[in-house]
Computed example of a mutant assay.
Amino acid sequence: MIRISNRFEGRVAVVTGGASGIGEAVARALHAEGASVVIADVQEAGRALADRLGERIRFLRTDVTVESDVAAAVDLAVASFGRLDVMFNNAGVMGTLGPIDRTPMAEADLTLAVNLRGVLCGFKHAARVMKPQGSGVIISTSSPAGVLGGVGPHVYSAAKAAVIGLSNSVAAELRPFGVRVNTVIPGAVVSPMTAAVVATGADDLAGATAALGDSALMNNRALTPEDVAAGVLFLASDEAAYMTGVTFPVDAGMTGISGRSPYTSGRYEQPVTLLEAGRTAAATARS
């Protein structure tokens, strides 16, 4: 992503799940706009990304299901750069898939551990720095599956719904301390995890781009990690200084629009007014 401003110069961020997909795009964008960034991920690809970005970047292998790992990522940010301004709780997995009556509970526990417990750990350790600091922004990644039934796996959907509730609850606590807490809801985005579901495998980003482009709700193209990063950076910036407890969709209206309006085409292409008992009248222009 091209650096377009220095909105985050002097700011410090931790991005969990920052080695690929949305997390990578956010880490790149924050760094490009002046932030110092800790990439916290179980994937060693995060180390290579940090090496490519150069200065103001650290990588720490982080399993978000392990509280001490999340604490260490926050501590690394403070030790290396002196503070913590942005915590992006983004690490997540699709987790266990399949019918509810055949769900392996051990896999369900792992899914919840990554997608919910990991976010809780992120809140806990970001808050212990941000509360005494008197400022900061915590953003967590949810999903349309946390709002709509039938668009995601069962346990994943439950965890993503819980992320929204948790975020709003924490927002109420941290508001008096000057710490903002918001949630982003990305639509289906081109990433290795999505490619594993809709294409031939995690490396088939071209296949994912084509598949998601075919079903795109807007702009006739797939949603990209950079599209989501633009929303995350807005929430993290001073431009959103009065926004907290917000659930922010970047999903072409998937969670807010049930479908194409049935009252603007076909028999309703010409305006009509529906009155009592189904009586209709031609719409009239009003001055």
Rank of each mutant, 00 (worst) to 15 (best):
N6G: 11
R7W: 03
G10L: 00
G10I: 02
R11C: 09
V12F: 13
A13Q: 11
V15H: 10
S20D: 12
E24T: 10
A25K: 05
A27C: 08
H31W: 14
A35T: 02
V38T: 01
G46Q: 08
R52A: 15
R52K: 14
I57Y: 06
R58A: 13
D63A: 09
A71S: 14
A72N: 12
F81V: 07
G82L: 02
V86Q: 03
F88G: 03
N89A: 12
D101P: 01
T103W: 03
E107P: 04
A113D: 03
N115I: 07
K131L: 12
P144K: 05
P144L: 07
V147I: 15
G149K: 08
G149Q: 05
V155H: 00
S157K: 09
I164F: 01
N168H: 14
V170R: 06
R175A: 15
G178P: 02
V181R: 07
I185F: 02
P186N: 11
G187R: 00
A188G: 09
P192I: 15
T194D: 01
A196W: 01
V197L: 15
A199T: 04
D204S: 03
L212F: 06
G213K: 04
D214R: 15
A216V: 13
L217K: 15
T224W: 12
D227A: 13
A230P: 04
A236S: 09
A241K: 15
Y242M: 15
G245N: 08
D251S: 06
G256Y: 02
S261C: 10
E269L: 10
P271Q: 04
T273D: 13
T273P: 02
L274N: 08
A277C: 11
R279Y: 14
T280K: 13
A282F: 13
T284P: 02
S287F: 11
